[in-house]
């Protein structure tokens, strides 16, 4: 598994990709700082809507993860080097798991640092709220990572399909069709955040913490299982 993991890290850690991710990760921190410097201090709900829900959970985390996770397999499918791995005498999970671990290794630090600093700046060093925001961001990375890694195996257009999911499904439809939230990674992550610090993030209609944990585990494990299954069944170019 170590070979697949190291190979994937080298494939994904391109200089340009890391630079763009750094830029994206800095955006919510800057936004939080700017909001706090404005004359009228925002309410928690306003801050959550702008910095956490829309920016961090709604765009930065999914976009950062999409850029990495979609490439974990789809680049190899496209340049036809995936056979180097699939013709190895390894159970398919020993290919899918290290791939996903490499995705998380790269994406988690960006999302975690970004979320931690955003929470720290916004909640004036309230540790509970900061931890809630950080844990939710890390969970979101894991969930998006698992989903988009699978997507990269399903289509070479994973970036486009992933963008449609993030922008249309999570950003647009879930705003006015409440049922859509049940199938939204963004809302699972926000539910975790609410559950971890209900005092700070009270009065919303998200899932309960136990439900959010269970759903998150199912989504993470489910997409990982689908990736393994896909590796077993797909025609490798």
């Amino acid at each position: 598994m170590g070979s697949v993991y190291r190979l994937t890290l080298r494939q994904l850690a391109g200089r340009w990709r890391l630079a763009i991710m750094t830029l994206l990760a800095a955006l919510p921190v800057l936004t939080a700082a700017l909001i706090l410097r404005s004359t009228e201090a925002p309410s928690v709900a306003e801050f959550e809507t702008v910095a956490l829900s829309a920016l961090l959970a709604g765009s930065i985390v999914p976009l950062v993860v999409l850029a990495i996770a979609a490439a974990a397999f789809s680049n190899e499918v496209e340049d036809r080097t995936l056979a180097n791995l699939t013709l190895a005498p390894l159970p398919r999970w020993q290919i899918a798991v290290p791939k996903l671990m490499a995705v998380l290794t790269i994406a988690v630090p960006f999302a975690a640092v970004s979320a931690f600093l955003t929470g720290h700046v916004a909640f004036l060093a309230d540790p509970k709220a900061t931890v809630a925001v950080t844990v939710a961001a890390v969970a979101a990375v894991a969930l998006y990572g698992s989903a988009f890694t699978w997507l990269g195996l399903m289509t070479t257009q994973a970036i486009g399909v992933g963008l449609l999911y993030v922008v249309l499904w999570e950003g647009f439809f879930s705003g006015f069709v409440s049922g859509v939230r049940l199938l939204s990674i963004r809302h699972y992550a926000l539910a975790l955040m609410h559950g971890l610090d209900p005092r700070r993030f009270a009065g919303t209609d998200h899932l309960s913490l136990p439900a959010a944990v269970v759903v998150s585990a199912v989504v993470f494990g489910g997409f990982l299982w689908l990736s393994i299954r896909r590796l077993r069944r797909m025609d490798v170019p």
Binding site: S3, V4, L7, R10, D79, L87, P89, L90
Partner: peptide, 28 residues
């Protein structure tokens, strides 16, 4: 089995020896 496909794409960032070593590791 040893399989060499017709596609000539390689991991351009890898040295030749690294590539062969990685393939050996993958095949135990």
């Amino acid at each position: 089995l040893g399989v060499m496909s017709e596609h000539e794409t390689v991991y351009g960032f890898m040295k030749g020896r690294e590539f062969v070593t990685m393939m050996g590791q993958l095949r135990g």
